[in-house]
């Protein structure tokens, strides 16, 4: 064998390849965690909580995947994919947990690919089309700020050890997502006249969808505290960005009850198309 050949020939060998690529070889956040539902935890309530949080992450990740090959710069290509992958990872663990605790035995893929839009429980903010980069950054800032606040509380005190572990891993990821979005909101707000205008429009466009995020705060958490925490982040970022924080008017209905915009069904249609075209396929 020539010295150049080893990489290619190793295809046929069993090897530990975790040292090679990004995105592998990380610790399993659920390693050693007991997956039985603890006494005193209502499995129906736990499944509903994991489903809502899992659907939020799955749909947000799908929208981030749509940025692929369209980002304004290669560094953003890498960063948006990173954030999309983190959220996809959260979605997979949360949906798996749903199938474990709701008694249905459904897998992550059953839940992702075999439900219709009215059965999805994500907040409407994440299903809106990407718009321009400013809109996507406005959404990511608010979404990750709220999710970080919620995950910190879940990691600190939720009685289900699986959800606690998922949240503990997510906290580190979401802190980065929020930082990334905040930096872009500041750059765009404080950049050119055009970027300032677009960034303000981005914030104004998401405004009607923000209140729903607070109504989706898990029971047992102090909604006012979460709202204040997110509000403080937005105020700080907006000040640095020379932007105005819009009023968050209340819009009827909630994604958590299966109320969606017309944007969700086409998103799911695309996501589910291959899986549904080849029933019984192994992937």
């Amino acid at each position: 064998m020539r010295e150049d050949d080893h990489v290619y020939l190793s295809l046929a060998e069993e090897q530990d390849d975790s040292r090679w690529a990004f995105g592998t070889g990380f610790e399993d956040p659920l390693h050693g965690v007991d997956t039985t539902v603890p006494d005193g935890v209502d499995p129906v309530e736990l499944a509903a909580l994991c489903l809502g949080l899992g659907d939020d992450a799955l749909v947000a990740s799908q929208r981030l995947a749509e940025w692929c090959t369209r980002a304004p710069e290669l560094e953003e290509e890498v960063a948006l994919a990173n954030i999309g992958l983190d959220l996809l990872g959260q979605a997979r663990m949360l949906l798996t947990r749903v199938g474990q605790v709701d008694g249905s035995g459904r897998s992550e893929d059953d839940l992702a690919y075999l439900r219709e839009s009215e059965d999805y429980r994500n907040v409407r903010l994440v299903e809106l089309p990407n718009g321009d980069f400013a809109f996507s950054m406005a959404r990511l800032l608010v979404f990750s700020a709220q999710r970080l606040a919620v995950f910190e509380r879940l990691a600190a005190g939720h009685p289900d050890p699986v959800l606690r572990a998922v949240a503990a891993k997510g906290v580190k990821e979401l802190a980065y997502h929020r930082q990334y979005a905040a930096e872009w909101v500041v750059r765009l707000g404080d950049g050119t006249d055009e970027s300032h205008r677009r960034m303000q429009e981005g914030l104004d466009t998401i405004a009607p969808y923000v209140d729903e995020l607070f109504r989706a705060v898990p029971s047992g958490q102090d909604v006012r505290e979460v709202r204040d925490e997110v509000g403080a982040v937005l105020a700080q970022v907006a000040a640095a960005a020379t932007l105005a924080v819009p009023d968050f008017e209340v819009m009827a209905g909630s994604g958590r009850d299966g109320v969606h915009t017309p944007c969700l069904a086409p998103l799911l249609f695309e996501m589910q198309s291959v899986a549904r075209a080849l029933p019984g396929g192994s992937w």
């Binding site: 090959t69 992958l85 992702a112 690919y113 291959v274």
Partner: peptide, 16 residues
């Protein structure tokens, strides 16, 4: 359009 979430993650990471 990846037909499983595992394949979606693998492909997303590859393109990244």
């Amino acid at each position: 359009r990846a037909p499983s979430l595992r394949r979606k993650a693998i492909l997303f990471a590859k393109v990244q």
